[in-house]
Simulated assay, not measured.
Amino acid sequence: MLWPVSSPARPFDTIFGQVRPLDWLCLAPHPDDAEIGAGGTLIRLAQAGRAVGILELSRGERGTQGTPEVRVAECARAADIMGLAWRGQLGLPDGELRDTLEAAHALAATLRAVRPRVLVVPHHHDRHPDHFGTYHLSKRAVHLAQLKKADLTGEPHRVSRVLLYQGNADIRPTLLVDVEAVQDTWAAAVLAHESQFAGAAISETVTPEIVERRRARLTYWGTLARARYAEAFETEDPLLVDPLAL
């Protein structure tokens, strides 16, 4: 269900669930990016009872296939499959995602509204301008969201941890997550974006073979993690690990 939000205090639309404090929030430049790059991890967290959300920065309106109306319905359907607590759209222009003050204020205000503890963003090595643009935009927004004197509505909020997920380029992960147990749910969530993955192949990403192609990556990372399938992330700050858990 689409819940339009027109208040300047909330520069986003809620398309699934309710606005609430989140344990994890994944930023997606376009609909389906979060499912493809981090979907298994998000599903595992949701199944464990964590409050998990996705925020699309654009509606993917310049994509070759689908319309914004069709894609928002697909996003809601995928959110239900994944068990998300919330999914929203910021409505920034597709193809123009970059670090501007206006966009950073909108994203920072959203971070204050949903208050994620962990933020997951695209890797800056990605070849797609909207993906590395989202990374740089998120850096400024995370900074602004915590400033008491920033010209923003809402109470200041500090994100505790930022993770980078794999999109269209290879990465050198510092964190691998076993996602074998949620493969069927992950595939269903990805394929809920039917307008992108049920028609003609447009690119290496927009293709009916998306699950097969992405699962090859999961298999590779799983080999390194001694698991069947794993998702890869990179941390920019060191992780504190209990040696007894190793």
Rank of each mutant, 00 (worst) to 15 (best):
V5S: 14
S6R: 08
P8K: 10
A9E: 13
P11R: 09
I15R: 07
Q18I: 07
Q18N: 15
R20W: 04
R20N: 14
D23V: 12
L25F: 11
L25H: 13
C26E: 05
H30C: 07
P31S: 05
E35G: 04
A38V: 14
G39A: 08
I43W: 00
R44D: 08
L45A: 15
L45N: 15
L45G: 12
Q47S: 11
G49T: 03
R50D: 14
A51L: 12
V52G: 06
L55V: 10
E56R: 12
E56G: 10
L57Y: 03
L57N: 02
G60I: 06
E61T: 10
G66W: 00
T67L: 00
E69H: 12
V70M: 10
A73Y: 10
R77L: 09
A78T: 01
A79W: 01
D80I: 00
I81P: 01
I81V: 14
L84C: 07
W86C: 12
L90T: 09
L90E: 04
L92K: 04
D94I: 05
G95K: 12
G95H: 08
G95N: 09
G95W: 13
L97Y: 03
T100D: 09
A103C: 03
A104C: 12
L107F: 08
L111P: 02
L111Q: 06
V114C: 15
R115H: 04
P116T: 11
V118N: 09
L119M: 07
P122I: 02
H124Y: 09
D126C: 02
F132Y: 15
F132G: 00
T134H: 02
Y135E: 00
H136A: 14
H136V: 10
L137M: 07
L137S: 08
S138P: 08
K139D: 14
K139V: 13
K139R: 15
R140S: 11
R140P: 00
A141T: 07
V142T: 12
K148T: 11
K149C: 04
L152Y: 01
T153F: 00
R158D: 01
R158E: 13
S160P: 00
S160R: 08
R161Y: 08
Y165P: 01
Y165F: 14
Y165A: 03
Q166M: 05
G167W: 10
N168R: 12
I171C: 02
R172D: 12
P173Y: 02
L175W: 03
L176E: 04
V179W: 05
D184V: 14
W186K: 15
W186F: 09
A187Q: 11
V190F: 01
L191D: 06
H193I: 10
H193M: 06
Q196G: 08
S203C: 03
E204R: 07
R213S: 09
R213I: 14
R214M: 15
R215M: 10
T223Y: 14
L224E: 07
R226P: 03
R226T: 13
R228A: 15
Y229W: 13
A230T: 02
A232V: 05
T235M: 13
L240H: 13
V241T: 13
D242E: 10
P243W: 09
P243M: 13
L244T: 15
L244H: 12
L246H: 11
